[in-house]
Write a protein that binds this DNA or RNA. Structure first.
Lengths: 238, 238
DNA sequence: CGATTCGTTGACGTCCGTCAAGCTAAGTGG
DNA sequence: CCACTTAGCTTGACGGACGTCAACGAATCG
Protein backbone atom coordinates (compact mmCIF):
# COMPACT_ATOMS: atom_id res chain seq x y z
CA UNK A 1 0.00 0.00 0.00
CA UNK A 2 1.45 3.35 -1.04
CA UNK A 3 1.56 6.18 1.42
CA UNK A 4 -0.86 9.02 0.85
CA UNK A 5 1.73 11.43 -0.54
CA UNK A 6 2.90 8.92 -3.15
CA UNK A 7 -0.73 8.23 -4.05
CA UNK A 8 -1.31 11.91 -4.63
CA UNK A 9 1.85 12.57 -6.63
CA UNK A 10 1.29 9.47 -8.74
CA UNK A 11 -1.45 11.45 -10.42
CA UNK A 12 1.35 13.28 -12.17
CA UNK A 13 2.38 10.05 -13.87
CA UNK A 14 6.09 10.48 -13.50
CA UNK A 15 7.39 8.85 -10.35
CA UNK A 16 9.70 5.83 -10.35
CA UNK A 17 10.01 3.29 -7.56
CA UNK A 18 13.02 5.05 -6.06
CA UNK A 19 10.98 8.25 -5.81
CA UNK A 20 8.20 6.43 -4.00
CA UNK A 21 10.71 4.89 -1.64
CA UNK A 22 12.08 8.34 -0.90
CA UNK A 23 8.60 9.67 -0.19
CA UNK A 24 7.98 6.79 2.20
CA UNK A 25 10.80 8.04 4.39
CA UNK A 26 9.04 11.35 4.89
CA UNK A 27 5.78 10.24 6.41
CA UNK A 28 6.80 8.06 9.31
CA UNK A 29 6.30 10.36 12.27
CA UNK A 30 2.82 11.84 12.44
CA UNK A 31 0.84 13.42 15.23
CA UNK A 32 -2.89 13.90 15.76
CA UNK A 33 -4.63 17.26 15.79
CA UNK A 34 -8.16 17.74 17.09
CA UNK A 35 -10.91 19.29 15.03
CA UNK A 36 -10.94 23.06 15.48
CA UNK A 37 -7.25 23.37 16.27
CA UNK A 38 -4.99 25.52 14.10
CA UNK A 39 -2.04 24.08 12.22
CA UNK A 40 -0.52 27.47 11.41
CA UNK A 41 -1.65 31.02 12.11
CA UNK A 42 -1.43 34.23 10.16
CA UNK A 43 1.90 35.92 10.84
CA UNK A 44 3.69 32.68 11.66
CA UNK A 45 7.04 31.89 10.06
CA UNK A 46 6.95 28.11 10.00
CA UNK A 47 10.19 26.17 9.96
CA UNK A 48 8.75 22.83 8.96
CA UNK A 49 6.43 21.89 6.13
CA UNK A 50 3.10 20.39 7.17
CA UNK A 51 1.43 17.55 5.28
CA UNK A 52 -2.10 16.24 5.89
CA UNK A 53 -2.06 12.47 6.34
CA UNK A 54 -5.65 12.09 7.43
CA UNK A 55 -8.66 14.34 7.95
CA UNK A 56 -9.76 17.61 6.37
CA UNK A 57 -8.26 21.05 7.03
CA UNK A 58 -8.83 24.47 5.54
CA UNK A 59 -7.09 27.73 4.78
CA UNK A 60 -9.10 30.60 6.23
CA UNK A 61 -8.84 34.29 6.99
CA UNK A 62 -10.21 36.34 9.87
CA UNK A 63 -12.05 39.52 8.94
CA UNK A 64 -12.59 42.64 11.05
CA UNK A 65 -16.36 42.04 10.93
CA UNK A 66 -16.01 38.54 12.37
CA UNK A 67 -16.22 36.77 9.02
CA UNK A 68 -14.15 33.64 8.62
CA UNK A 69 -13.96 32.90 4.90
CA UNK A 70 -12.49 29.53 3.90
CA UNK A 71 -10.25 29.89 0.83
CA UNK A 72 -9.08 26.29 0.41
CA UNK A 73 -9.88 22.80 1.61
CA UNK A 74 -6.97 20.46 2.31
CA UNK A 75 -7.43 16.70 2.16
CA UNK A 76 -5.02 13.82 2.79
CA UNK A 77 -1.89 14.22 0.66
CA UNK A 78 -2.07 18.01 0.53
CA UNK A 79 0.74 20.26 1.75
CA UNK A 80 -0.14 23.22 3.95
CA UNK A 81 2.84 25.43 3.24
CA UNK A 82 5.25 23.78 0.84
CA UNK A 83 6.90 26.99 -0.30
CA UNK A 84 6.06 29.37 2.45
CA UNK A 85 9.67 29.89 3.46
CA UNK A 86 9.93 32.17 0.44
CA UNK A 87 7.43 34.59 1.91
CA UNK A 88 8.26 36.27 5.16
CA UNK A 89 5.09 35.18 6.91
CA UNK A 90 1.75 33.43 6.50
CA UNK A 91 -1.02 35.68 5.21
CA UNK A 92 -3.75 33.29 6.36
CA UNK A 93 -4.51 30.56 8.90
CA UNK A 94 -4.79 26.81 8.45
CA UNK A 95 -7.09 24.93 10.79
CA UNK A 96 -8.32 21.36 11.19
CA UNK A 97 -11.98 20.92 10.23
CA UNK A 98 -12.03 17.32 11.44
CA UNK A 99 -9.65 15.34 13.60
CA UNK A 100 -6.46 15.12 11.57
CA UNK A 101 -3.12 13.42 11.42
CA UNK A 102 -0.25 15.69 10.39
CA UNK A 103 3.37 15.15 9.43
CA UNK A 104 6.02 17.79 9.98
CA UNK A 105 8.70 17.63 7.30
CA UNK A 106 11.91 19.59 7.97
CA UNK A 107 12.73 22.15 5.32
CA UNK A 108 16.05 20.44 4.66
CA UNK A 109 14.16 17.36 3.50
CA UNK A 110 12.17 19.42 1.01
CA UNK A 111 15.34 21.05 -0.26
CA UNK A 112 16.80 17.60 -0.75
CA UNK A 113 13.79 16.50 -2.78
CA UNK A 114 13.89 19.61 -4.93
CA UNK A 115 17.60 19.33 -5.73
CA UNK A 116 18.22 15.57 -5.82
CA UNK A 117 14.92 14.10 -6.98
CA UNK A 118 13.96 16.00 -10.13
CA UNK A 119 10.90 13.86 -10.80
CA UNK A 120 9.58 14.53 -7.32
CA UNK A 121 10.43 18.19 -7.75
CA UNK A 122 8.35 18.35 -10.90
CA UNK A 123 5.51 16.55 -9.14
CA UNK A 124 5.60 19.09 -6.31
CA UNK A 125 5.46 21.86 -8.90
CA UNK A 126 2.50 20.11 -10.42
CA UNK A 127 0.73 20.02 -7.06
CA UNK A 128 1.35 23.74 -6.56
CA UNK A 129 -0.01 24.61 -9.99
CA UNK A 130 -3.09 22.49 -9.42
CA UNK A 131 -3.71 24.33 -6.15
CA UNK A 132 -3.68 27.55 -8.14
CA UNK A 133 -6.02 26.12 -10.76
CA UNK A 134 -8.44 25.13 -7.99
CA UNK A 135 -8.43 28.70 -6.67
CA UNK A 136 -9.32 29.98 -10.14
CA UNK A 137 -12.14 27.48 -10.46
CA UNK A 138 -13.48 28.51 -7.06
CA UNK A 139 -13.55 32.09 -8.28
CA UNK A 140 -15.60 31.00 -11.27
CA UNK A 141 -17.86 28.97 -9.01
CA UNK A 142 -18.57 31.83 -6.61
CA UNK A 143 -18.84 34.50 -9.26
CA UNK A 144 -20.99 32.75 -11.82
CA UNK A 145 -23.14 30.09 -10.20
CA UNK A 146 -26.03 30.14 -7.79
CA UNK A 147 -25.99 28.41 -4.45
CA UNK A 148 -27.27 25.00 -5.55
CA UNK A 149 -24.77 24.71 -8.39
CA UNK A 150 -22.00 26.11 -6.19
CA UNK A 151 -22.61 23.44 -3.58
CA UNK A 152 -22.85 20.71 -6.18
CA UNK A 153 -19.68 21.85 -7.89
CA UNK A 154 -17.70 21.94 -4.66
CA UNK A 155 -18.90 18.49 -3.67
CA UNK A 156 -17.99 17.09 -7.08
CA UNK A 157 -14.52 18.56 -6.78
CA UNK A 158 -13.96 17.12 -3.34
CA UNK A 159 -15.17 13.65 -4.29
CA UNK A 160 -12.90 13.73 -7.33
CA UNK A 161 -9.94 14.80 -5.24
CA UNK A 162 -10.63 12.13 -2.61
CA UNK A 163 -10.92 9.55 -5.35
CA UNK A 164 -7.63 10.68 -6.89
CA UNK A 165 -5.77 9.66 -3.72
CA UNK A 166 -7.64 6.39 -3.39
CA UNK A 167 -10.15 7.50 -0.77
CA UNK A 168 -13.42 6.62 -2.41
CA UNK A 169 -15.04 5.32 0.71
CA UNK A 170 -15.81 8.54 2.51
CA UNK A 171 -18.47 9.47 0.01
CA UNK A 172 -19.78 11.66 2.77
CA UNK A 173 -18.48 15.13 3.46
CA UNK A 174 -17.63 16.07 7.02
CA UNK A 175 -18.33 19.80 6.80
CA UNK A 176 -20.87 21.65 8.91
CA UNK A 177 -23.33 23.78 7.02
CA UNK A 178 -21.66 26.86 8.44
CA UNK A 179 -18.27 25.74 7.12
CA UNK A 180 -19.81 25.01 3.74
CA UNK A 181 -21.33 28.48 3.72
CA UNK A 182 -18.03 30.11 4.72
CA UNK A 183 -16.41 28.31 1.81
CA UNK A 184 -18.96 29.46 -0.74
CA UNK A 185 -19.69 32.94 0.55
CA UNK A 186 -23.27 32.24 1.63
CA UNK A 187 -24.86 32.15 5.07
CA UNK A 188 -25.44 29.00 7.04
CA UNK A 189 -29.20 29.57 6.90
CA UNK A 190 -29.24 29.73 3.15
CA UNK A 191 -26.91 26.74 2.92
CA UNK A 192 -29.44 24.79 4.94
CA UNK A 193 -32.32 25.75 2.68
CA UNK A 194 -30.48 24.91 -0.51
CA UNK A 195 -29.21 21.61 0.87
CA UNK A 196 -32.77 20.70 1.85
CA UNK A 197 -34.01 21.44 -1.66
CA UNK A 198 -31.20 19.43 -3.24
CA UNK A 199 -32.08 16.55 -0.95
CA UNK A 200 -35.72 16.81 -2.02
CA UNK A 201 -34.59 16.60 -5.63
CA UNK A 202 -32.59 13.48 -4.88
CA UNK A 203 -29.28 15.13 -5.73
CA UNK A 204 -27.98 14.61 -2.22
CA UNK A 205 -28.78 12.58 0.84
CA UNK A 206 -28.16 13.94 4.32
CA UNK A 207 -27.36 11.40 7.00
CA UNK A 208 -25.86 12.01 10.37
CA UNK A 209 -24.78 15.52 9.44
CA UNK A 210 -22.86 14.20 6.47
CA UNK A 211 -23.58 14.69 2.80
CA UNK A 212 -23.97 11.57 0.66
CA UNK A 213 -24.01 11.66 -3.14
CA UNK A 214 -26.26 8.93 -4.52
CA UNK A 215 -25.56 9.65 -8.21
CA UNK A 216 -22.28 11.39 -8.92
CA UNK A 217 -22.81 11.77 -12.64
CA UNK A 218 -26.19 13.38 -12.13
CA UNK A 219 -24.73 15.87 -9.66
CA UNK A 220 -21.85 16.51 -12.06
CA UNK A 221 -24.23 17.44 -14.88
CA UNK A 222 -26.40 19.48 -12.54
CA UNK A 223 -23.38 21.47 -11.38
CA UNK A 224 -21.62 21.89 -14.71
CA UNK A 225 -18.56 20.24 -13.19
CA UNK A 226 -15.63 19.46 -15.49
CA UNK A 227 -12.57 17.98 -13.74
CA UNK A 228 -10.03 19.13 -16.34
CA UNK A 229 -8.75 21.89 -14.08
CA UNK A 230 -7.54 19.27 -11.59
CA UNK A 231 -5.02 18.04 -14.19
CA UNK A 232 -5.28 14.41 -13.13
CA UNK A 233 -3.21 12.88 -15.89
CA UNK A 234 -3.25 9.38 -14.53
CA UNK A 235 -5.90 6.95 -15.69
CA UNK A 236 -8.58 7.55 -13.12
CA UNK A 237 -9.56 4.08 -11.84
CA UNK A 238 -7.32 3.63 -8.87
CA UNK B 1 15.85 53.14 -15.81
CA UNK B 2 15.21 49.51 -14.85
CA UNK B 3 13.14 47.32 -17.11
CA UNK B 4 9.68 46.44 -15.91
CA UNK B 5 10.57 42.89 -14.87
CA UNK B 6 13.45 44.05 -12.72
CA UNK B 7 11.19 46.69 -11.19
CA UNK B 8 8.68 44.03 -10.27
CA UNK B 9 11.15 41.51 -8.87
CA UNK B 10 12.96 44.19 -6.90
CA UNK B 11 9.95 44.12 -4.60
CA UNK B 12 11.41 40.89 -3.30
CA UNK B 13 14.45 42.77 -2.05
CA UNK B 14 17.03 40.26 -3.08
CA UNK B 15 18.43 40.99 -6.52
CA UNK B 16 22.03 42.06 -7.16
CA UNK B 17 23.22 44.07 -10.12
CA UNK B 18 24.23 40.98 -12.06
CA UNK B 19 20.70 39.63 -11.70
CA UNK B 20 19.26 42.84 -13.04
CA UNK B 21 21.68 42.76 -15.95
CA UNK B 22 20.57 39.21 -16.71
CA UNK B 23 16.91 40.25 -16.64
CA UNK B 24 17.68 43.08 -19.05
CA UNK B 25 18.72 40.55 -21.66
CA UNK B 26 15.28 38.96 -21.60
CA UNK B 27 13.10 41.88 -22.54
CA UNK B 28 14.63 43.21 -25.72
CA UNK B 29 12.31 41.83 -28.38
CA UNK B 30 8.68 42.73 -27.78
CA UNK B 31 5.65 42.81 -30.03
CA UNK B 32 2.34 44.66 -29.83
CA UNK B 33 -1.03 42.99 -29.31
CA UNK B 34 -4.32 44.78 -29.87
CA UNK B 35 -7.01 45.03 -27.23
CA UNK B 36 -9.33 42.05 -27.42
CA UNK B 37 -6.77 39.65 -28.89
CA UNK B 38 -5.84 36.45 -27.06
CA UNK B 39 -2.32 35.74 -25.87
CA UNK B 40 -2.98 32.06 -25.14
CA UNK B 41 -6.07 29.93 -25.38
CA UNK B 42 -7.41 27.09 -23.31
CA UNK B 43 -5.94 23.81 -24.54
CA UNK B 44 -2.77 25.41 -25.88
CA UNK B 45 0.61 23.95 -24.97
CA UNK B 46 2.77 27.06 -25.13
CA UNK B 47 6.47 26.69 -25.82
CA UNK B 48 7.52 30.16 -24.79
CA UNK B 49 6.78 32.12 -21.64
CA UNK B 50 4.85 35.36 -22.12
CA UNK B 51 5.59 38.52 -20.14
CA UNK B 52 3.47 41.68 -20.14
CA UNK B 53 5.65 44.72 -20.84
CA UNK B 54 2.85 47.21 -21.24
CA UNK B 55 -0.93 47.23 -21.02
CA UNK B 56 -3.42 45.15 -19.07
CA UNK B 57 -4.40 41.54 -19.79
CA UNK B 58 -6.59 39.02 -18.00
CA UNK B 59 -7.00 35.32 -17.37
CA UNK B 60 -10.54 34.28 -18.22
CA UNK B 61 -12.65 31.21 -18.79
CA UNK B 62 -15.48 30.56 -21.22
CA UNK B 63 -18.62 29.02 -19.75
CA UNK B 64 -21.29 26.96 -21.53
CA UNK B 65 -23.87 29.64 -20.72
CA UNK B 66 -21.81 32.36 -22.40
CA UNK B 67 -20.29 33.69 -19.19
CA UNK B 68 -16.75 34.97 -19.40
CA UNK B 69 -15.45 35.23 -15.85
CA UNK B 70 -12.12 37.00 -15.35
CA UNK B 71 -9.98 35.20 -12.76
CA UNK B 72 -6.86 37.38 -12.79
CA UNK B 73 -5.67 40.75 -14.05
CA UNK B 74 -2.14 40.94 -15.43
CA UNK B 75 -0.24 44.22 -15.44
CA UNK B 76 3.23 45.16 -16.70
CA UNK B 77 5.85 42.87 -15.19
CA UNK B 78 3.48 39.91 -14.79
CA UNK B 79 4.12 36.51 -16.35
CA UNK B 80 1.28 34.79 -18.18
CA UNK B 81 2.46 31.21 -17.89
CA UNK B 82 5.78 30.98 -16.12
CA UNK B 83 5.42 27.35 -15.12
CA UNK B 84 2.82 26.09 -17.50
CA UNK B 85 5.14 23.58 -19.16
CA UNK B 86 4.59 21.41 -16.09
CA UNK B 87 0.92 21.03 -16.90
CA UNK B 88 -0.04 19.40 -20.16
CA UNK B 89 -2.23 22.26 -21.32
CA UNK B 90 -3.73 25.61 -20.41
CA UNK B 91 -6.98 25.37 -18.47
CA UNK B 92 -7.95 28.98 -19.20
CA UNK B 93 -7.43 31.79 -21.72
CA UNK B 94 -5.35 34.94 -21.46
CA UNK B 95 -6.50 37.97 -23.43
CA UNK B 96 -5.42 41.58 -23.82
CA UNK B 97 -7.85 44.03 -22.21
CA UNK B 98 -5.99 47.04 -23.61
CA UNK B 99 -3.39 47.38 -26.31
CA UNK B 100 -0.36 45.53 -24.96
CA UNK B 101 3.30 44.90 -25.56
CA UNK B 102 4.38 41.33 -24.95
CA UNK B 103 7.72 39.55 -24.72
CA UNK B 104 8.15 35.90 -25.60
CA UNK B 105 10.86 34.27 -23.50
CA UNK B 106 12.10 30.85 -24.63
CA UNK B 107 11.73 28.14 -22.03
CA UNK B 108 15.47 27.51 -22.15
CA UNK B 109 16.04 31.02 -20.84
CA UNK B 110 13.74 30.38 -17.89
CA UNK B 111 15.50 27.10 -17.15
CA UNK B 112 18.79 28.98 -17.17
CA UNK B 113 17.45 31.51 -14.68
CA UNK B 114 16.11 28.82 -12.38
CA UNK B 115 19.34 26.80 -12.32
CA UNK B 116 22.06 29.44 -12.61
CA UNK B 117 20.58 32.50 -10.92
CA UNK B 118 19.30 31.36 -7.54
CA UNK B 119 18.29 34.85 -6.43
CA UNK B 120 16.20 35.31 -9.56
CA UNK B 121 14.79 31.83 -9.06
CA UNK B 122 13.66 32.75 -5.57
CA UNK B 123 12.18 35.99 -6.86
CA UNK B 124 10.20 34.06 -9.48
CA UNK B 125 8.95 31.76 -6.74
CA UNK B 126 7.96 34.83 -4.79
CA UNK B 127 5.98 36.16 -7.75
CA UNK B 128 4.17 32.83 -8.12
CA UNK B 129 3.25 32.72 -4.45
CA UNK B 130 1.98 36.30 -4.55
CA UNK B 131 -0.22 35.38 -7.52
CA UNK B 132 -1.71 32.64 -5.38
CA UNK B 133 -2.22 35.01 -2.45
CA UNK B 134 -4.05 37.40 -4.77
CA UNK B 135 -6.39 34.61 -5.83
CA UNK B 136 -7.18 33.88 -2.18
CA UNK B 137 -7.86 37.54 -1.49
CA UNK B 138 -10.19 37.72 -4.50
CA UNK B 139 -12.10 34.79 -3.07
CA UNK B 140 -12.50 36.69 0.18
CA UNK B 141 -13.52 39.79 -1.74
CA UNK B 142 -16.21 38.05 -3.76
CA UNK B 143 -17.47 35.90 -0.95
CA UNK B 144 -17.67 38.40 1.86
CA UNK B 145 -18.11 41.92 0.53
CA UNK B 146 -20.87 43.70 -1.30
CA UNK B 147 -20.47 45.29 -4.69
CA UNK B 148 -19.26 48.73 -3.56
CA UNK B 149 -16.57 47.32 -1.27
CA UNK B 150 -15.63 44.70 -3.87
CA UNK B 151 -15.05 47.39 -6.47
CA UNK B 152 -13.13 49.57 -4.06
CA UNK B 153 -10.97 46.68 -2.91
CA UNK B 154 -10.10 45.64 -6.46
CA UNK B 155 -9.20 49.20 -7.42
CA UNK B 156 -7.00 49.58 -4.35
CA UNK B 157 -5.20 46.36 -5.21
CA UNK B 158 -4.57 47.41 -8.79
CA UNK B 159 -3.30 50.85 -7.84
CA UNK B 160 -0.98 49.26 -5.29
CA UNK B 161 0.33 46.78 -7.84
CA UNK B 162 0.86 49.50 -10.45
CA UNK B 163 2.67 51.57 -7.88
CA UNK B 164 4.88 48.63 -6.93
CA UNK B 165 6.34 48.55 -10.44
CA UNK B 166 6.73 52.30 -10.63
CA UNK B 167 3.60 53.05 -12.66
CA UNK B 168 1.86 55.60 -10.47
CA UNK B 169 0.72 57.78 -13.32
CA UNK B 170 -2.12 55.72 -14.70
CA UNK B 171 -4.27 56.44 -11.72
CA UNK B 172 -7.11 55.62 -14.03
CA UNK B 173 -8.30 52.11 -14.73
CA UNK B 174 -8.84 51.07 -18.33
CA UNK B 175 -11.56 48.48 -17.74
CA UNK B 176 -15.05 48.62 -19.17
CA UNK B 177 -17.86 48.22 -16.71
CA UNK B 178 -18.64 44.85 -18.21
CA UNK B 179 -15.05 43.66 -17.66
CA UNK B 180 -15.17 44.95 -14.10
CA UNK B 181 -18.41 43.04 -13.57
CA UNK B 182 -16.97 39.84 -15.06
CA UNK B 183 -14.06 40.17 -12.65
CA UNK B 184 -16.27 40.58 -9.58
CA UNK B 185 -19.13 38.28 -10.49
CA UNK B 186 -21.74 41.02 -10.89
CA UNK B 187 -23.63 42.24 -13.95
CA UNK B 188 -22.60 45.26 -15.97
CA UNK B 189 -25.87 46.99 -15.04
CA UNK B 190 -25.24 46.62 -11.35
CA UNK B 191 -21.63 47.66 -11.79
CA UNK B 192 -22.85 50.85 -13.40
CA UNK B 193 -25.26 51.64 -10.56
CA UNK B 194 -22.68 51.03 -7.86
CA UNK B 195 -20.01 53.04 -9.68
CA UNK B 196 -22.47 55.91 -10.00
CA UNK B 197 -23.19 55.82 -6.28
CA UNK B 198 -19.50 55.70 -5.40
CA UNK B 199 -18.94 58.67 -7.68
CA UNK B 200 -21.75 60.54 -5.91
CA UNK B 201 -20.05 59.82 -2.59
CA UNK B 202 -16.79 61.20 -3.93
CA UNK B 203 -15.00 57.89 -3.63
CA UNK B 204 -14.34 57.76 -7.35
CA UNK B 205 -14.36 60.07 -10.32
CA UNK B 206 -15.36 58.83 -13.75
CA UNK B 207 -13.75 60.57 -16.68
CA UNK B 208 -13.61 59.42 -20.27
CA UNK B 209 -14.64 55.88 -19.35
CA UNK B 210 -11.77 55.64 -16.89
CA UNK B 211 -11.92 55.42 -13.12
CA UNK B 212 -9.97 58.02 -11.15
CA UNK B 213 -9.31 57.74 -7.42
CA UNK B 214 -9.19 61.18 -5.80
CA UNK B 215 -8.36 59.95 -2.27
CA UNK B 216 -6.67 56.57 -2.09
CA UNK B 217 -6.61 56.35 1.68
CA UNK B 218 -10.30 57.07 1.94
CA UNK B 219 -11.09 54.35 -0.60
CA UNK B 220 -8.75 51.99 1.26
CA UNK B 221 -10.63 52.47 4.51
CA UNK B 222 -13.99 52.24 2.79
CA UNK B 223 -13.01 48.92 1.18
CA UNK B 224 -11.22 47.35 4.13
CA UNK B 225 -8.12 46.98 1.95
CA UNK B 226 -4.93 45.74 3.59
CA UNK B 227 -2.00 45.25 1.19
CA UNK B 228 -0.18 42.66 3.32
CA UNK B 229 -1.22 39.82 1.05
CA UNK B 230 0.79 41.37 -1.80
CA UNK B 231 3.98 40.72 0.18
CA UNK B 232 5.74 43.85 -1.03
CA UNK B 233 8.78 43.69 1.18
CA UNK B 234 10.59 46.59 -0.39
CA UNK B 235 10.18 50.05 1.11
CA UNK B 236 7.20 51.30 -0.83
CA UNK B 237 8.22 54.76 -2.12
CA UNK B 238 9.65 54.00 -5.52
C1' DC C 1 -29.37 16.88 33.03
C1' DG C 2 -27.80 21.47 31.73
C1' DA C 3 -24.71 23.21 28.17
C1' DT C 4 -23.22 23.49 23.67
C1' DT C 5 -23.17 22.85 18.87
C1' DC C 6 -25.55 22.18 14.84
C1' DG C 7 -29.59 21.82 12.09
C1' DT C 8 -34.38 23.51 10.90
C1' DT C 9 -37.99 26.70 9.97
C1' DG C 10 -40.53 31.26 9.38
C1' DA C 11 -41.10 36.24 8.37
C1' DC C 12 -39.32 39.97 6.15
C1' DG C 13 -36.13 42.98 3.79
C1' DT C 14 -32.48 44.07 0.29
C1' DC C 15 -28.92 43.44 -2.86
C1' DC C 16 -28.54 42.25 -7.22
C1' DG C 17 -30.26 40.12 -11.72
C1' DT C 18 -33.22 40.47 -15.73
C1' DC C 19 -35.35 42.75 -19.38
C1' DA C 20 -35.80 46.67 -21.95
C1' DA C 21 -35.15 51.13 -23.77
C1' DG C 22 -32.59 55.09 -24.79
C1' DC C 23 -28.27 57.68 -24.67
C1' DT C 24 -23.44 59.06 -26.04
C1' DA C 25 -19.13 58.76 -28.45
C1' DA C 26 -16.40 56.98 -32.01
C1' DG C 27 -15.80 55.05 -36.38
C1' DT C 28 -17.31 53.91 -41.42
C1' DG C 29 -18.73 54.67 -45.76
C1' DG C 30 -21.74 57.19 -48.95
C1' DC D 1 -21.12 66.34 -44.06
C1' DC D 2 -24.52 63.08 -43.01
C1' DA D 3 -26.74 58.57 -42.17
C1' DC D 4 -25.55 54.34 -40.16
C1' DT D 5 -23.39 51.17 -37.10
C1' DT D 6 -21.33 49.64 -32.97
C1' DA D 7 -19.60 49.54 -28.24
C1' DG D 8 -20.23 51.18 -24.03
C1' DC D 9 -22.83 53.89 -20.53
C1' DT D 10 -27.30 55.21 -18.23
C1' DT D 11 -31.80 54.60 -16.43
C1' DG D 12 -36.34 52.38 -15.03
C1' DA D 13 -39.49 48.66 -13.57
C1' DC D 14 -39.84 44.37 -11.65
C1' DG D 15 -38.63 39.92 -9.60
C1' DG D 16 -35.80 36.51 -7.31
C1' DA D 17 -31.91 34.85 -4.72
C1' DC D 18 -30.00 35.52 -0.64
C1' DG D 19 -29.29 37.89 4.02
C1' DT D 20 -30.99 39.01 8.62
C1' DC D 21 -33.24 38.12 12.80
C1' DA D 22 -35.34 35.04 15.69
C1' DA D 23 -36.98 30.95 17.72
C1' DC D 24 -37.02 26.13 18.28
C1' DG D 25 -35.55 21.21 17.79
C1' DA D 26 -31.93 17.48 17.78
C1' DA D 27 -27.74 15.44 18.95
C1' DT D 28 -23.63 15.14 21.73
C1' DC D 29 -21.07 15.48 25.98
C1' DG D 30 -19.26 16.23 30.54
Amino acid sequence: MLNILARKLRNFNLLHQEDIDRLDELVHVSYPLASGQDIIRQGDEPHTVHLILDGVACRYKLLPNGGRPIVALLIPGDFCDLHVAILSQMDHNIGALTDCHIVDIPRAQIEDLLTNYPRIARALWWATLVDEAVLREWLVNMGQRRADRMIGHLICELLTRFSAVGLDHPFSLPLTQEQLGDTLGITAVHTQRVLAEMRDQGLLALENRAIIVPDFDRLRRFSDFNPDYLHLNRALPY
